[in-house]
Design a protein around this nucleic acid. Structure first.
Length: 438
RNA sequence: GGAGAGCUGGCCGAGUGGUCGAAGGCGCUUGAUUCGAAAUCAAGUGAUCCCUUACGGGUUCCAAGGGUUCGAAUCCCUUGCUCUCCGCCA
């Protein structure tokens, strides 16, 4: 979330920044300024009373408890106590209102994020490789995977419902190979520390990175049984991305400035309800309730954030390059960017069957927005004031979509699929997934 | 699931109603000493929010939330978490 003081002191600037996201993003700002003044008034009154209480209480310790003077002061202070309680209740109410507003206000886009209303106004900043040429009509991954018996959509639906898929044989092996390969590259070549986090996470953790309260409907929440055997909502969510548990590793911490940047990579299964995406990408692996992803997370000093963001993006790109997959990098416009982000690059991989690029990674710089929510700070040097870190993360990469890209880009006329060279060792030496019975 | 113990500053650990942001120790920082280091000695060493141009002043924080009281780290209630033993379990 944004800093109340900063918002109120720079109202016009913040308003101008938020308005770039489109109408509606600035609505809450107008309520904030008067509330902030009210908050300060309450605090000043409250603290004056408390100071008096503390002063008098200290004096009373030395007074004879049976004296009239003691009784008189005590009665006076009883009144002060009541007033204090009223003011405390008022402060709580005002703070809650402010918090509520702030939690729903999105991040201010960075100046380098282009203006725009939707995905067609994103800027393509670079393109890598070339689209493969086929002497035949390329088939999509779902057809290939059903034919070679590595993707079982029907049984996925049978056991778990729509948007669940079973990987089988070399499909399952490829998924695992990709996970290992990505983690190896990031930890060995890019200097990330590997993390294996829980995927059931608390609501406060979801709040820290901004998934809650605004996007509650996008996440799965688990239930527990009450004494009547009824399912009751339980305060644990299925992580929609490793970003959530991994970023929150350092929640409520003051990090040593010398330890920055901290870089983590983590594989997790990811769970998304995909509310509001009915009818979209219903065929194949593109949009699932459960999918695998390797994530990259960096905690950095503010002054290095832009450079760090580019660096992280290049780390995600390296995976695509090593696999030999044609892709492009899109700088998202303000209207297409996530609410928490200041600036986002999407990596889009070429999918020949769809004759288009599809998102396979999203690399975002969040400024101090997540850090403020999650209270992730650092001390530049011994004795200096704690400051908020900047957080950056990105997929490195979405594994299911990578498998899709490999199937579609490396298919042969007979329906077999070439395994990218770098993955062959991870596939136990297999260089080609056969067209049938894989 | 059953029984018990506990949760205090970066760490260890005192503190059971007032003078406690909290003894003592460790760690850390600075200075002295040293050719330098170790050891030793001295001083300092949390966060939060509010007021103030500044200097500075004040508030809150002893797991969290509520309560009792003129006054709570200390008493009461609720919740969470940790540990030990038993049971169950991949």
């Amino acid at each position: 979330m944004l800093d109340l003081r900063y918002v109120v002191d720079h109202l016009d600037e913040v308003r101008a920044g938020l308005s770039r996201r489109g109408a509606g993003a600035t609505v809450a700002l107008d309520e904030l300024a008067p509330l902030s003044i009210e908050r300060r008034d309450v605090i000043v009154k409250l603290e004056t009373l408390r100071a008096k209480k503390n002063e008098v209480s200290a004096a009373m310790a030395k007074v004879d408890k049976k004296s009239d003077e003691f009784a008189k002061t005590r009665d006076e202070m009883r009144l002060v106590g009541e007033q204090t309680k009223e003011l405390e209740a008022k402060q709580k109410a005002v703070d809650a209102k402010i918090e509520e507003l702030l939690l729903y206000i999105p991040n201010v886009p960075d100046a380098t994020a282009p203006d725009g209303g939707g995905s067609d106004e994103n800027q393509i900043v670079r393109t890598w490789g070339e689209a493969p040429k086929f002497a035949f009509a390329p088939r999509d991954h779902a057809d290939l995977g059903v034919a070679n018996n590595t993707l079982d959509f029907e049984r996925g639906t049978k056991i778990s419902g729509a948007r669940f898929t079973v990987l089988r044989g070399m499909g399952a092996r490829l998924e695992r190979a990709l996970m290992q390969f990505m983690l190896d590259v990031h930890s060995n070549e890019h200097g990330y520390v590997e993390i294996w986090p829980p995927v059931l996470i608390k609501d406060t953790t979801m709040r820290g990175t901004g998934q809650l309260p605004k996007f509650a409907k996008d996440a799965f929440r688990i239930a527990e049984w009450d004494e009547n055997g009824e399912a009751q909502a339980y305060q644990l969510y299925l992580a929609p991305t490793a970003e959530v548990p991994v970023t929150n590793l350092h929640a409520d911490e003051i990090l040593d400035g010398a330890s920055l940047p901290i870089a983590y990579t983590a594989y997790t299964a990811c769970f998304r309800s995909e509310a509001g995406s009915y009818g979209k990408d219903t065929k194949g692996l593109i949009r699932q309730h459960q999918f695998d992803k390797v994530e990259l997370v960096r905690f950095v000093k503010p002054e290095t954030a832009q450079v760090e963001h580019e660096k992280l993006t290049s780390h995600a790109e390296a995976i695509l390059q090593k696999l030999g997959l044609h892709y492009r990098v899109a700088l998202l416009c303000t209207g297409d960017m996530g609410a928490v982000s200041k600036k986002t690059y999407d990596l889009e991989v070429w999918l020949p069957a769809q004759n288009t690029f599809r998102e396979i990674s999203s690399c975002s710089w969040f400024g101090d927005y997540q850090a403020r929510r999650a209270k992730i700070r650092y001390r530049a040097e011994a004795g200096s004031k704690p400051e908020l870190v900047h957080t950056i993360n990105g997929s490195g990469l979405a594994i299911g979509r990578t498998l899709v890209a490999i199937y579609e880009n490396f298919q042969e006329a007979d329906g077999s699929i070439r395994v990218p060279k770098v993955l062959v060792p991870y596939m136990g030496g297999v260089e080609k997934i056969p067209a049938h019975g894989a």
